[in-house]
Amino acid sequence: MQVPILTYHGVNVAGNEYAGNDHVAFAADLELIHALGLRIVPAQWLVDNLLGRAGHDLRRCVVLTCDDGSNFDYYDLDHPEHGSQRSFFNALLDFRRRHGRAAQPDLHLTAFVIADPQARARMDVSCLVGRNWMQQEWWRAAQASGLIGIENHSWDHNHPCLDSPGPHGLARGDFHAVASEEQAEFEITQAQEYIAAQMAPRQPRLFCYPFGHVNDFLSRDWLPRRGPEVGLDAAFGDGATPVNADSDRWNLPRYICGWHWRSPEQLRDTLLAAADVAAA
């Protein structure tokens, strides 16, 4: 098993070219993955195999994720500088219309969302353009579509736009700072409970570290001990390597669009390298 996990951010719109626009990249990457003869599968399949719960054939497979849970994930939006942006969800629908369901029967995107509505409102004003583009009303529809899964990206991302210190003395702007029982419960358990309440009867089972910040307390102590108790199966960081049978379930590596690759050619090389290892 050698499965690369690719990650996108809907708020990354710095133009309308591949290197600066995750929506342009996402649509192009769907076509590239398919042209290479690779299969897109849900992140939960990968985790279930790691935990010995399932035996999915994951040879030559790719997992897709996106972070933060902005409205860009689900809705087409008019960016004030760069015009209409096709959402990740609609890009998936476009791909399915072009190729048919049989082309990628397990097509799926895992969306890691920020839970706290007040924090999302602050981020919308501080980091976007104050148009209420960090809402949650689309979560249930996305989940019901079968194309997107809603998962846990913490309570408030410990975002630098929030007042510091936060609860339990939490210094803002760095998820490495989440290093106590109280802070972990505030950021992760509280988010689990909130997202589960919005998505009932389904609850989130996957967690993604904000900023890709993985510390030893969370990955080696709190999550192995408390994660299963609060309903979590695994956690995702960055790492830029494929997931294999020996990967740490509490720090699964991902490739980040715009960071680990910035062109179709770079992604092609990454995917082919992982596929070659899997084939071998």
Rank of each mutant, 00 (worst) to 15 (best):
N21R: 12
Q198W: 14
R97P: 07
Y255Q: 01
E187W: 07
D94L: 14
Q136T: 10
G231F: 10
Q190M: 08
V214R: 08
N12V: 11
D238K: 11
L206A: 15
T241A: 15
W45A: 15
D276S: 09
W45D: 15
C257W: 01
A177W: 12
Y8G: 15
D116L: 02
V113D: 03
M199I: 05
T110Q: 05
G146Q: 12
E187K: 08
G227V: 06
G146I: 14
W261P: 04
R122W: 02
R122H: 01
M1I: 06
N215Y: 03
G173A: 05
L92D: 10
L162R: 04
A240H: 09
A200W: 14
S263Y: 03
R172A: 14
V243P: 02
T110E: 07
P105T: 07
A144K: 07
I33H: 10
A196T: 05
H176E: 05
I148G: 01
C127Y: 14
P228T: 05
C61W: 08
V277Y: 01
A102W: 00
P228F: 04
Q118W: 00
V11P: 00
H157K: 07
D73N: 15
H82S: 04
A54F: 09
H34V: 00
H23W: 03
S70R: 04
P80A: 14
S145N: 12
A196I: 01
R97L: 13
R268M: 03
E265K: 02
E182D: 12
D106A: 14
C127V: 14
A177Q: 15
A25Y: 02
W261E: 01
G52C: 11
P204T: 04
R53L: 09
L223R: 00
L38F: 11
L6I: 02
W138P: 11
S145E: 13
N49M: 08
L147H: 09
R131H: 13
P160I: 08
C161G: 05
F95Y: 13
V230Y: 00
I188F: 02
H23K: 03
R96E: 15
A171G: 12
V214T: 07
H159R: 06
G15H: 00
L128S: 05
V11A: 02
L6M: 00
A196E: 02
G169I: 06
D216W: 08
F89H: 15
W259Q: 02
A200D: 07
G130C: 11
D248P: 06
D156P: 02
R86G: 10
P117R: 11
D248T: 04
D276M: 06
L36S: 04
R254M: 06
S219L: 11
T241E: 15
L77K: 03
G166R: 10
E17S: 13
E187G: 08
C61E: 06
A91R: 09
A91T: 03
V24M: 06
V13K: 05
G37A: 12
L109C: 09
N152S: 00
